[in-house]
């Protein structure tokens, strides 16, 4: 769906949101330079525009729209179309069978002092090493 609308509107760049791939961006001429987190640290990637990027919530502090702008935006005409006008089938391919709470954890206990905790850790430590 996004691919088709992008085609029709030819945006400079689209910004979506993904929780797991932090990314900082800087527009340089007609290229986009972004910094993103990977498993081992960070990488900087450059690409020509147009580009599709997703942003981490740490990218920036949100800018709240001023009231006059909100009023102005409300007056804009919305172009609402049905997905099938674009020849796109949006029926889900994956069905949700059930949603369950995760297995409950056993209730914990409190140890009195550092020595007792050291005993617990020592026991668990030898246990994990034995694997």
């Amino acid at each position: 769906m996004i691919a088709i609308t992008s085609d029709k509107c030819s945006p400079v760049y689209s910004i979506g949101r993904r929780q797991r791939s932090p990314l900082n961006s800087a527009l340089r001429m007609a290229r986009l330079s972004v910094s993103r987190e990977v498993d081992f640290g960070r990488v900087t990637i450059a690409m020509p525009l147009p580009a599709v990027v997703t942003a981490d919530l740490r990218l920036n502090t949100p800018r709240n729209a001023a009231l006059p702008m909100v009023m102005k935006a409300r007056q804009k005409k919305l172009d609402v179309r049905r997905a099938d006008e674009f020849g796109v089938d949006l029926s889900p391919r994956v069905t949700i069978e059930k949603t369950t709470p995760p297995p409950a954890r056993a209730t914990g206990r409190t140890v009195d002092n550092v020595g007792a905790l050291a005993d617990e850790i020592a026991a668990l430590h030898s246990g994990t090493e034995a694997h």
């Binding site: 914990g108 050291a118 020592a122």
Partner: peptide, 23 residues
């Protein structure tokens, strides 16, 4: 603390050095 299996209520700056010693 409510979720944990084993809990030590202590200040970490005191507990961790002595825990390292005890271990």
């Amino acid at each position: 603390v409510k979720l944990a299996d084993i809990v030590l209520i202590a200040d970490l700056f005191e507990a961790i050095p002595s825990l390292i010693e005890e271990l």
